[in-house]
Design a protein around this nucleic acid. Structure first.
Lengths: 133, 133
DNA sequence: CGGCATCCGTTCCGATACTG
DNA sequence: CAGTATCGGAACGGATGCCG
């Protein structure tokens, strides 16, 4: 049972009336993460939405091995992708988007599209803000 | 002129073929930010998409005064909202979403909706992952 | 090849105190 | 009321080395 706050004039505190703001907040931060977005979108562009570690590493410019590993672990833990290991030589590990991960594609792409369409406007706004200051 | 990398097997490196991956990356991190999302969505729910500082502070549970100020400054700088000060006593400052900020509403809401619909599945996946480990 | 462990500088962010 | 300034802990994240 949560404590209710009767003083709040704005109910948007709970993000469109959601019951567990902390959970939503935590998950939003996670799916809004820079590397998570790049990783998921990179996998999404492949025919089978599947790739091995080294492919992802080369496909995502600027990602360190450490961050790639950590991000992959988190997404696997959250059920957004699967990890499959083939004990060959050399070792091969493949990652693939789950249905849950694929369901995230549409909203995530929406955000990326907005950025793609509007980042120049944002740049202009920054310049204007700097000039006015 | 950017250097071309002919060895890359995956072109998704540039986020759906975008020209400036760094800019997109930076902006994605920003609009994917926890407090930015809460702030924009909180404003969006108001009739005039406008509120004063203290309203926002009370409406967004867990936000510190410092983070609210910083987030507001960033969003103002990026042209997503405006700041208007009324030199009364007591002082009053109002923030309002710009057209650019409003255009971000739809994609952002899409992400929030996904989280709202699927966070329980994610929680289950985490439990299963912990058990299997 | 695909990791994990460690170190270590940087950034983030909450708490606190103070101001117009 | 709406900030700014400062401090210190926590988290982030790159570099490096080692291993199955």
């Amino acid at each position: 049972m949560k404590k209710s706050n009767s003083k709040q004039p704005l109910d948007s505190a709970y993000v469109c009336g959601h019951e567990d703001p902390d959970a939503v907040r935590e998950l939003l931060t996670k799916v809004g993460d820079k590397w998570s977005i790049f990783l998921i979108l990179t996998l999404a562009k492949l025919p089978d939405m599947r790739a091995r570690f080294s492919e992802l590493e080369r496909a995502i410019p600027g990602v360190s091995q450490r961050m790639l590993t950590l991000t992959l672990r988190t997404l696997e833990r959250d059920g957004l992708l699967t990890r499959e290991m083939f004990p060959e030589v050399p070792l091969r590990v493949e990652y693939e988007l789950t249905p849950l991960g694929r369901s995230l594609l549409r909203p995530m792409q929406g955000l990326v599209d907005w950025v793609t369409e509007n980042w120049k406007l944002v740049k202009q706004a920054r310049t204007a803000f700097g000039d006015a200051r």
